[in-house]
Design a protein around this nucleic acid. Structure first.
Lengths: 202, 202
DNA sequence: GATTGAATTTAACATATGTTAAATAATCAT
DNA sequence: ATGATTATTTAACATATGTTAAATTCAATC
C-alpha cells in the first residue's frame, strides 16, 4: 500500500530531541504539537511526492533516507538534497501555494516519516509562535548554507567536492548508491569512479 | 566618509511598494516600520560588510547594485548573489548570532540602501507579525530557488547557464562587469568571452 | 541458489573549460 | 586630455570531465 497512512505506534524521541535543540518547552507542549503530525512509512524506491503535483505534506525523517531531485528538459536527473534521520524536507512554497513542485521526493531506503498537511502547517505556524521563530531561523541558516554550497560548485573541482562531502557527511556513503552521490556532486558516475580510483590508489 | 550614516532625506517609495506586494496595511503602519531602518549610501567599489566580521546590519536596496561573494582558501572569489533595486540582502544568521560572516558585500555602483541593525531586526520580528510572516515565506521561496540554481549548476553547461541568466536578468548585463558575471556563473572570464563570441557570431 | 537486472569500473575518445600570456579595448584618476 | 590601470579578447596549450561502450561486480527476485 503505497504511502499508506500508518497510524499505529512509533517512537517520537528523535522528533522531540530536534525540537528541544531549538526551543525549551514542557513535554506537554511538544506532545500537543506532535498531534499535528501524521506517521507514514514508505518502501525502498517508493515515491513520496511527485514533481508536477502540489505537495500534500511536508516531512520530518524519523528513519531511513530519501532524495530530492529535479529532472530537466533534457531528462537529466539532478539530486539537490539527501534527507536522513532528523532532517526536515519538503517543498513548502509549493505546498502552501498549492502549486506544482519542480522536485521529486523518493525513498532511497525504507522510511519512517512524520508528515504535516498544508492545513496543519499553517495552524502550527499560527498557534505555536516558538515554532514560527525556530522555523524562520532554520530557513535563514539553510539559505546561507545553500549559498556556500553554490560557491563550492562554482570554484572547486569534482574531486575536491567529493572529498568535502566525504568529510561532511561520511555516513551518506555507507547507505546511498554511488551514482546518486555523483548526481549530487554534479558529475557523471564514470567521473566519480575515476576520482575514487585516483584517491584510493595513492 | 565610508559607510557614513546619512540621515538626510530619501525616497522610500520602492520600499513601501515591496512591502505592499507582501501585505496590505494602512500607510501609517509602513511608516512606523520604516523608522526601524536607516538610510546609508556607499560609493562604487566600497565595502559594505566584510567577511570575518559580524554583520552590523541587513539591507534593502533602494538604488544601485552590489555583490555578495566568498573568497576560498585558494584565494578564488565566488559571487553568490547580485542585489539590485528592490532586493533584500545580508547575512542574517551571522548578524543575529553575532558571528563572523563568510560573505563579503561590496557596492558595484554607487548605492542607496536602507539598513536595519540586529537589535531593530529582532524588534521588527517581534512587534510586526506581518513582517515575520512575510519574511518566512520569502525565505522559503529563496531556499527553493537556490536549490533550483544548484540543479542548474549540476547539469547545465556554462553556455546554457549564461543564456538562462541573460533571459532571467537581462538588465544585469548592462551594469555589471563581465568577469563578475563569469564568477557568478562559475566559469573563467576567458571562457565567458569565448561563449559570447560563439553565440554572437552565429 | 540461479537468474536477471542494475551499478560500478574500465577504456578510448571527444569536448568543454581552465591556464598562461599577450594584445587590444575600455575605464579611471590626475 | 593623457597616462595608468583594469577589463576583455584572443590564442596556444593543458586538463578535467563527458560520452560511449564493454566488462565486471553487485544486488534483487523468484
Amino acid at each position: 500500500m503505497p504511502g499508506k497512512n500508518n497510524t499505529y505506534s512509533f517512537d517520537p524521541t528523535l522528533f522531540f530531541e530536534e525540537l528541544k535543540k531549538r526551543v525549551d518547552l514542557p513535554q506537554a507542549k511538544y506532545e500537543e504539537f506532535l498531534r499535528l503530525w501524521e506517521f507514514k512509512t514508505f518502501k525502498k524506491n517508493e515515491f513520496i511526492l511527485h514533481a508536477g503535483e502540489a505537495p500534500k505534506f511536508s516531512i520530518f525523517v524519523l528513519a531511513g533516507c530519501l532524495r530530492q531531485y529535479t529532472v530537466n528538459e533534457a531528462g537529466d536527473e539532478s539530486i539537490v538534497y539527501f534527507a536522513e534521520e532528523r532532517h526536515w524536507i519538503g517543498d513548502l512554497p509549493a505546498m502552501r501555494a498549492k502549486t506544482p513542485s519542480v522536485f521529486n521526493f523518493q525513498a532511497i531506503e525504507e522510511c519512517s516519516l512524520l508528515t504535516i498537511s498544508p492545513e496543519n502547517w499553517e495552524k502550527a505556524f499560527t498557534d505555536f509562535s516558538w515554532w514560527a521563530q525556530a522555523h524562520l531561523t532554520g530557513y535563514q541558516r539553510w539559505a546561507s548554507l545553500l549559498q556556500q554550497k553554490m560557491a563550492e560548485m562554482q570554484t572547486l573541482s569534482g574531486e575536491t567536492r567529493y572529498l568535502n562531502l566525504l568529510k561532511e557527511r561520511p555516513r551518506l556513503f555507507q547507505r546511498v548508491p554511488q551514482h546518486y552521490i555523483a548526481s549530487y556532486l554534479g558529475i557523471s558516475p564514470e567521473t566519480l569512479s575515476r576520482i575514487r580510483k585516483k584517491i584510493f590508489n595513492s
